[in-house]
Amino acid sequence: MNKLLNRRNFLKGGLATTAAAAVLKNSDTQAAGHFDGYPDSMGVLVDLTRCVGCRSCEAACNKEQQLPEPAKPYDDFSVFDEMHHGQKRRTDETRYTVVNRYDVPEIDHPLFRKIQCNHCAEPACLTSCFVNAYTKTPEGAVIYNPKVCVGCRNCMIACPFYIPTFKFSHAFTPRIMKCIFCYDTRLKDGKAPACVEACPQEALTFGKRTEVLEMGKQRIRMTPGKYVNHVYGEHEVGGTAWMYLSSVPFDKVGLDTHLPNEPIIYSVKDFLAMVPMVLTIWPGLFVGFHLLATRKDKIKELEDAKNKKNDEKEEQV
């Protein structure tokens, strides 16, 4: 029995376990590792130099997705002046996409930027969802299953583009509202989403992600000086299916230029991989330390008791 609590054996065992955990941890991280996106994923290139702010995409989306009637007609351009809590219009439970106007001082005309779900290759909403309500389909769409959603709204916090919104009007039947790339009605049959089809200016170009990315790069190359030399979404947060071309720096048209090039999950992956190790190893480890630290006290206690007994015996004698 003495062997069990032998210090040398204890330390040896502890070391071996830690080493094993370290190895396991590494292989875990690799297994969950890099994902470049599905090879035949579709995408859309949004060319801001072409958009004229006609809002046809908004109208088409509303009808296709059977969303509620808008507060103002789609040919009412006063919406571009709307501000809500100091912010321009954003997606909500009644609209999966919005076009906003940006007045950039350096150029003599306003720019318009459409925003919707960008359909990341490795979506933060999906990785943050603990009931797997989200799916990244091989066609490139990030779709959502309201049947399993519990309404925790982690996805809303996780999304780097602030896209998923909650249907607060039906708070007891949780429902996240966001663009699904027209997956059900179009994309799965190889058709372009409704907004792309409606766009008169072909500001939205639909095709295989690799092809539309190539088109974006060619437009930059063939018309020097017209575009910022960057396709927004090529690398941002691990790559998105929807990408943007602009004639002005992207932060001037309301796009976040400080996003990492790695998927959002990478920021927390190492931490998350440590959780199982901490939960399984630490209890044993610290119980061990505790036993070790208190061992001498116990022995002393026993000896004291023994001595006391002996003393008593001696006294009796």
């Binding site: 509303n62 009637e69 103002k72 007609p73 789609y74 040919d75 006063s78």
Partner: peptide, 17 residues
């Protein structure tokens, strides 16, 4: 399609102003 003209939203602000 554009929810305008005859199909304009019943209430809510009108564009004309």
């Amino acid at each position: 399609m554009f929810s305008t003209g005859k199909h304009a939203p019943a209430k809510g602000t009108s564009s004309s102003g």
